[in-house]
Each structure stands twice: as C-alpha cells, then as structure tokens.
Design a binder for these strands. Structure first.
Lengths: 149, 149
DNA sequence: ATGACTGCAAAGCCTTTGCACGCAA
DNA sequence: TTGCGTGCAAAGGCTTTGCAGTCAT
C-alpha cells in the first residue's frame, strides 16, 4: 500500500475540477486543497484549521468549511462521519483505490485498511438496494492494542 | 427478515442489563428503552424526544441522551454516525442478527439491508487489523429511486 | 434517609450563515 | 468594473453539563 507525502496529482485535479465548475482560484480554496493533499487519511475541518493557522495561511474557518463542501459536492473529496459529532474528509483518488477505517473507541486513533474481498461484497450488495450507490464507508470499532492493556 | 412491532425481549434484556450494572429503574430510562424497542431501524435522539413528548411521557431531553449513552456503553444499543451532525441509535439484538444502511444523500431516507457475504468479508478483515473489533457499520450512500427522477 | 435520577436551563462544540471588504477575471 | 470569494463575528443545531428537586431503594 503506497502512500505519498503530498498528492500533487490529486491537488491539481481538484483545482481543475473546481475551475471547471466555475469557481475562481481564490487563495483560501487553494490553501485548503493543498492542505488536504498532504493527508492520506481522514482529517477534520478543525484539524485543517489548526494546520493552516500554524502556517499563517490567513484562511478563515468559514472558508475551510465552504471549500470542503464544494469539494465534496464535486466528487473529489469524501466526507466521513466517524468521530463523535465531527466530520472528517478524505481525498478521492482517481485510481479508485481507497481504504476504510478501524477506530479505537477509547483513544479515537484511526487505522486504515483495505480489502478487495470486502469491496467485492459491497459491490454485490450495492446492486441489490434501491439506492443508486455512489459511495460507501465501512467502520470497524473496538479497542486498539495500546488501549486494551 | 422478520420484524416485530415492539421488541419486548430486547426491552426486558436492556432493563435487566441496566439493573445489573447498578442503575435504578427510573421512569425516564424505562421510557427511553420502551421507545427504542418500538424501532427496528436507526432513530435519532431528537426523534425519540419528539415521540416521548407526543406521548406526554414527561421525559427531559437530557435524560434521553444520558440513557442512550448508558445503553450504548452496556452494549445493548449501537450508536451510528449516519446523518449530517446527528447520531442515530439502534438496538443490538442478542441473536447477533443485524443490518446495515443505504442512505439517500438527497432526502436522507434510510434503507436497511443485510447480507451474509458482507458479514463474512468484514469478519475476515476484522481479524487483520490491530484493533480488537467489537462492532462495525457499513453505509452505502447515493440517491434513492424517488430522488433520482 | 440517602444518594441516584431527572427536568430544566445554560453552556459547549462543530458547523453554517450574514455581511462588508477584497480580489480574480 | 463586476460579482464571486473571503474573513470575521454571530447565529444554529445537536449534545452535554450544572443544579436543585424528586424518587427509588
């Protein structure tokens, strides 16, 4: 399972899609896309806010939420409901490759995993429901090794 | 797939577990358990609140949240993060039988489904992660038939 | 009688919205 | 120049907490 420090390809793709949708290349949106491109796994809006503030990007919290919403709507970002009352976001890579998450119910740590068999099972089920399935998410919950002891 | 109007067995089990954990048989908790036992699928705290208010149960919103938290902790209730910023709760039946959800991203309608193959795939994956998996959830998102047209 | 349980109201937290200014096109 | 984009502050919505009265044991 490869992982890149910064997914420049995704960032460029995202900016292109934004532009194609008629959005202008504002500083805030670009900063949000760039911040997201540095994360392989789920990040929350507040984490991005912290990050951008540390980099003194001068991006308002509202702009972060607005950008995330647009990116999600355009299908380049996936919104996840994983932690208690807080959404997380994750890049959607063009290759179609993606992972799911095991979450420690004690410390909240996220462990990503991927499994072709699981994906096949989901694809089969998706064909049987009346919803036209566009995406899915699987979450495993329990205690991580550290919290078990 | 059978479905009962009111899962009295679950309700009694839940009350018993509560009692066993040292909780007293207060009116609010009993009302919440009874309300939950009438739902086969995910309900939000606010929906339960509406329901109980209509029945003039005189149960405060805070008590509903407190009861839900206790029931979840005792393992008789499952908390789901399905809709935007709002949690839902679902009974955990002793038979181990359970379903997952397909959600319309437009109208929010939930369609439950179950699939043994999917469960097997999840069981396999659960053995490979470092988290000691106690439960899991699968969510399919897309547009329902009504919202597609 | 004692301490858990509860309702009410207030506070918290994440997220969204309103608004005036600034900037991309 | 036009009106989209943005930051700030205020408002929203769900959830949690504080507190004093009530009730189970």
């Amino acid at each position: 399972m490869m992982s890149v420090a910064t997914d420049r390809a995704w960032a460029e793709h995202a900016l292109e899609v934004l532009h194609g949708a008629g959005y202008r290349r504002g500083g805030a949106r670009t900063a949000v896309v760039e911040a997201l491109s540095r994360h392989d796994c789920a990040v929350s809006a507040l984490e991005l806010d912290d990050e951008l503030r540390q980099r003194k990007a001068g991006v308002g919290r509202a702009s972060i939420y607005r950008s995330l919403e647009q990116l999600e709507e355009l299908g380049v970002l996936k919104r996840l409901e994983v932690s208690r009352g807080m959404a997380s976001y994750e890049r959607i890579v063009q290759s179609g490759h993606h992972h799911h998450h095991a979450i420690c119910r004690s410390c909240g740590r996220l462990e990503p995993f991927e499994d072709p068999g699981l994906e096949r099972a989901i694809a089969r089920v998706a064909g049987r429901v009346s919803v036209d399935v566009a995406e899915h998410e699987v979450v495993l919950r329990g205690l991580c090794e550290r919290c078990t002891r």
